[in-house]
Design a protein around this nucleic acid. Structure first.
Lengths: 147, 147
DNA sequence: GTAAAATTGGACAGAAAAAGTCTCATTTCT
DNA sequence: AGAAATGAGACTTTTTCTGTCCAATTTTAC
């Protein structure tokens, strides 16, 4: 019951793009280096983000990734679900056949509520918020330890 | 990002016990049959529930499992976490070293909030609630389809 | 006390999912 | 045409989860 690493990488990647000036194009290698993501793995993740309409992928010599929506319009939830699929917590929430009479089941209803709450929290935060609040999750190594 | 099957089984098991009269002792085999849980797998799950102080295991010929707390005093969260460990959603929430400067990170703070909400929802529901609301998640096969 | 019936506890195997790697193809710029 | 980047998918490795098996232990019954 946790975010997959791919989801975490996706958040880092989008956050990195959101921190640049609008429409900046950043190479995969740069993002991979700075966000500590295996480059080939990042490629797969980027494809999913592109399919979800969050970033744009430019091929060729001066290719790379570009955020195609305003950071304020992209929620944490959206990026995560672009990678790991819709959050549902428990099978019975999304595949009623695993549980007889799901809608009549109190346990089922709790899971639905829990999922809704979780999605609400993640959906209420945009990447603009995250940038403004000075997020880490990007490399911080050059930083010297606090004096 | 979903409950494991072991967690689901644990909920079914405790729910089954909660539906009996107080202090009823139910054999592992009976629970396994009625809740459709592989008996040996149930044994492992029961051990964790016992360790968490939720059920009591009686050995011997007329052994079995018994709920040792009032259903009203056992939350869904407790049973789940007894099996899958504390819910944390993202590594950075529980292992700060995966992320530099976690507490300063806005993403980190969102995850903490999301986790707290999720745990709050699951923690607010007791097995008494679930029994009262007529939960399924136990076998329903003998039931004929609605006319 | 011994046998039977139940569970324990740990090892182990199989399956599924996730993480990461590799390679060849394609695109774009020069 | 060549160089430098990404695309796409197959593949491998690792990890986690699920489930099984068996010897040991406990309790009940005779």
């Amino acid at each position: 019951m946790r975010l997959t690493r791919a989801g975490e990488y996706a958040v880092r990647c989008v956050l990195h793009l959101a921190k640049q000036e609008p429409d900046a194009l950043v190479s995969r290698q740069t993002i991979a280096d700075q966000c500590r993501i295996p480059p080939h793995f990042l490629a797969k993740i980027a494809q999913q983000l592109a399919k979800a309409g969050i970033i744009e992928i430019m091929q060729g010599t001066r290719g790379g990734y570009r955020l195609i929506r305003r950071p304020a319009e992209v929620s944490l939830l959206e990026v995560i679900e672009a990678i790991i699929g819709e959050i549902f917590l428990n099978d019975c929430v999304i595949r009623p056949e695993t549980c007889q009479a799901s809608p009549d089941c109190a346990v089922h209803r709790v899971w639905v509520r829990a999922r809704d709450e979780l999605r609400r929290v993640l959906g209420s935060v945009s990447f603009e918020d995250l940038v403004r609040e000075e997020s880490c999750c990007l490399v911080r190594f050059p930083l010297s330890p606090p004096a």
